[in-house]
Design a protein around this nucleic acid. Structure first.
Length: 446
RNA sequence: GGAGAGAUGGCCGAGUGGUCGAAGGCGCUCCCCUGCUAAGGGAGUAUAGGCCUUAUAAGCUUAUCGAGGGUUCGAAUCCCUCUCUCUCCGCCA
């Protein structure tokens, strides 16, 4: 959510920035709402003030207990009737307008940072291709699906039987490699990059998703669990049956960032750096036909998430560090990648600036996204009232950052394809050997 | 799932219809006193808004005592619904 003060004072400029994101701001509507709210709010508060004063007077009079006082109290009470009517009417109007303003504000995306390229041309900022250049694959390259299936370690048809499309089943060495990857990433981030390992809920409430910006705009991307309470009673008590909704997390960013919701951090507790390895669930509505083959786009996948809650002045330094932490994983795995600065049209809703890391997939002869690291500035913090006490003791909104470090499933794809051998086997990257219990190569399952 | 008890400021805890945003204590901050292994005294110490102001401070003011609704001239206090926490029983990884 954007700062209403900023919107008000720099409306044209803000609208222009939003334009770069492909979002057109209804300026007139906003001005109308904000002015109307101001007037009605002042009026409401004046009425409330009058009400409170009269009430206090009545209290004093009835405490005093003398007769003329009682008379006066009576007349004051009758006077209150009209005031009440007026107040309830104006409060109803205020509720409506505040709701309209809220709805208006919560669908506006974040403003792009000044360094973000305008338009839809992403910009490569660096690449790391040592292995790609040093050891080219001089044989018929297979994609990860063929590699996995030929080895008997990857089984989509059984996964389809169990669940449906966009699910996968891995067995034996591949399942272990998958587990090893997650452990390796977590260990690296906790031991070398200073993140605190966190175990989080995979089901979250609507407030949390609102805080990070998935709701209300992107509900169709989420898996929702409707839980009817008192279902068995079957409307015996109508008031008692109430819905409680959970959503499956689309990323650990949601629970991790929401640890800060409605909190005020002390200055010396910053930065907060959290990491978690979790499954992520995405409905992938509207992505029919895209990436239908393989592990690239699944309803369920594992991801190690990195989150930082930082002082606003340090958030862009933190972003550079964060992307470095994610890159480190690929470097250790010796997987070729490049870093791309997303353009204004390509960024996510809550982000002010985003770097994607794209890993080299030889079978597709292209780079594919494996990590996305964003600085959301105060956009999420404002939605969820995540604050800290600044140098002068005042509360101020935090800046929030998140990034994948990395998507485990896609990383597995990259290893299968980049580490494949001409005989169909797959070598295990050296850093993972300690996690593989002596296995250094994936071969056909007996 | 059954039975009961609760939810108040950073923490503990008082407050059952009026001047209560809220006693007292702890903690914390600042000041003073004292000057050795400590203690004492004073002041301050929720959040988000609005008005005023060039702006800050001050001042005035609105909302918030788990959440929402209701009763009332007036609600932390009474009523209803929900959420959460705790205790006991049952069940369970």
């Amino acid at each position: 959510m954007l700062d209403t003060n900023l919107l008000r004072t720099t409306l044209d400029d803000t609208a222009k920035k939003l334009d770069a994101r492909g979002f057109s701001l209804e300026k007139k509507y906003f001005v109308k709402l904000i002015n109307e709210r101001g007037l009605i709010r002042t009026e409401t508060q004046n009425l409330e003030e009058t009400r409170n004063k009269i009430s206090r007077k009545i209290g004093q009079l009835s405490m005093a207990g003398d007769e003329s006082g009682q008379e006066e109290a009576k007349s004051l009470k009758s006077k209150m009737k009209g005031l009440h009517k007026e107040l309830s009417e104006i409060k109803a109007r205020l509720d409506i307008i505040e709701h309209e303003l809220q709805v208006f504000l919560e669908q506006i995306p974040n403003l792009p940072h000044s360094t973000v390229p305008t338009g839809n041309e992403n910009k490569e900022v660096r690449n790391w291709e040592i292995k790609k250049i040093a050891t080219p694959l001089n044989f018929a390259i297979k994609d990860h699906v063929s590699i996995g299936e030929d080895l008997g370690l990857l089984d989509f048809s059984t996964a389809t039987k169990i669940s449906g499309a966009r699910f996968s089943l891995m067995v034996d060495g591949l399942a272990r490699l998958h587990r090893a990857l997650g452990q390796f990433m977590l260990d690296t981030h906790t031991q070398e990059h200073g993140y605190t390992e966190t175990y989080v809920p995979y089901l979250v409430n609507a407030d949390s998703l609102y805080g990070t910006g998935q709701l209300p705009k992107f509900e169709e991307d989420l898996f929702k669990i409707d839980q009817k309470k008192n279902d068995s009673v079957e409307n015996k008590n109508e008031k008692g049956s109430q819905e409680e909704n959970f959503y499956l997390i689309p990323t650990a960013e949601v629970p991790l960032i929401n640890t800060a919701r409605n909190e005020i951090f002390s200055l010396d507790s910053l930065p907060v750096k959290l990491t978690a390895l979790t499954p992520c669930f995405r409905s992938e509505a509207g992505s029919y036909g895209k990436d239908t083959r393989g592990l690239i786009r699944q309803h369920q996948f594992e991801k190690v998430e990195l989150v930082q809650l930082v002082h606003p002045e340090k958030s862009y330094d933190a972003l550079e560090q964060l992307i470095g932490h994610a890159e480190k994983i690929l470097q250790k795995l010796e997987l070729p990648y490049r870093v791309v600065l997303l353009s204004s049209k390509d960024m996510g809703f809550a982000a002010a600036k985003t770097y994607d890391i794209e890993v080299w997939l030889p079978a597709q002869n292209t780079y594919r996204e494996i990590s996305s690291c964003s600085n959301c500035e105060a956009f999420q913090a404002r939605r969820m009232k995540a604050r800290f006490r600044n140098e002068s003791g005042k509360t101020e909104l935090l800046h929030t950052l998140n990034g994948s470090g990395l998507a485990v499933g896609r990383c597995l794809v990259a290893i299968l394809e980049n580490y494949q051998n001409s005989d169909g086997s797959v070598s295990i990257p050296k850093v993972l050997h300690p996690y593989m219990g002596g296995i250094t190569q994936l071969s056909a399952k007996k």
